[in-house]
């Protein structure tokens, strides 16, 4: 049994370990380790395409995570007030949003966005004349929208769990001591759910930063880091890809571990 478990773990982690190891490779072949060196890190980070892709990914991830956190938190708080059947219905919707495969979300979002753009662009054109300054199209905006929508469901689930674990009598005590509802929310509810909000943000960020499938459909001409890796891998696995893989892995792990730590912290 132990051996079996060991085998499973090896199978899971050896490829990842190999990528990390080979990112420090001194040689120029991706499959042959010929000494330890940081030279590929230097080269990768000097590559303007990589730098641009990182910038795009980072901008999209931060913006979409911020939006998802803001609206997800508000939605979670609002859902607290919904009871009975309707509540079940909303809960189901949220869980479905998380479980739908990325490819379906990617295609669905693409179709939805393209349809909206095709309807709106002629309207905008008639509104602003021939030099229409606002041309809707796929790009950072659509990436942010798609990622934001999907990760909002994650934030709702995390914040909801925290809200449900919160002692209701704290809000009653706050009201009893003279705080109107909005002030109770700011002074009591927000501090209580802050760890969950932060964890939700980090998870949303990680999801967006790593995502390839949804981005592939809605990115338009933008290149995120995963899209860059995908396109360059067609020219074979280079040490550069190992470096990017290792960096993305490190960033994601850092973010996920921080989220875990924040969530585990006691409620004060």
């Amino acid at each position: 049994m132990r051996l079996y478990a060991l085998a499973v773990y090896l199978f899971l982690y050896i490829p990842i370990g190999v990528i990390a190891l080979f990112s420090f490779n001194a040689g120029r072949h991706a499959a042959q380790f010929s000494g330890f060196s940081l030279q590929w890190y230097g080269k990768t980070l000097a590559n303007p395409f990589v730098v641009n892709a990182v910038k795009t990914s980072f901008t999209v991830a931060v913006t979409s995570a911020l939006l998802a956190t803001l609206f997800g938190t508000l939605a979670a708080v609002a859902l607290q007030g919904v009871r009975g059947r309707l509540r079940l219905f909303y809960d189901a919707l949220v869980y479905v949003a998380v479980m739908v495969p990325g490819i379906v979300i990617g295609i669905a979002t693409l179709i939805a966005l393209v349809t909206v753009f095709d309807t709106l662009n002629p309207l905008l054109a008639t509104l602003f004349g021939p030099e229409n300054p606002i041309q809707l199209g796929l790009g950072k905006g659509s990436l942010i929208a798609a990622h934001g929508l999907f990760t909002m469901a994650l934030v709702i689930i995390i914040v909801r769990a925290r809200l449900q674990g919160m002692d209701r009598s704290l809000l009653e005590a706050s009201a009893d001591l003279g705080a109107p509802p909005m002030r109770s929310f700011v002074q009591i509810t927000l501090p209580q759910i802050a760890p969950a909000v932060l964890a939700g943000f980090l998870l949303a960020f990680t999801f967006s930063f790593d995502d390839f499938i949804i981005a592939f459909f809605v990115a338009g001409s933008e290149t995120t880091l995963p899209i860059y890796v995908f396109s360059s891998i067609r020219r074979g696995v280079t040490p550069e890809i190992n470096v990017i893989g290792t960096l993305v892995l490190a960033a994601s792990l850092l973010s996920l571990i921080t989220a875990q730590v924040v969530m585990r912290r006691r409620s004060h």
């Binding site: 002692d167 009598s169 704290l170 009653e172 005590a173 706050s174 009201a175 009893d176 001591l177 003279g178 705080a179 109107p180 509802p181 009591i188």
Partner: peptide
């Protein structure tokens, strides 16, 4: 409650 001139000590204290 926030407009009533009374205060309550809760069973589980409900301290912040």
């Amino acid at each position: 409650p926030h407009q009533r001139p009374v205060n309550m000590v809760f069973q589980q204290y409900a301290l912040f």
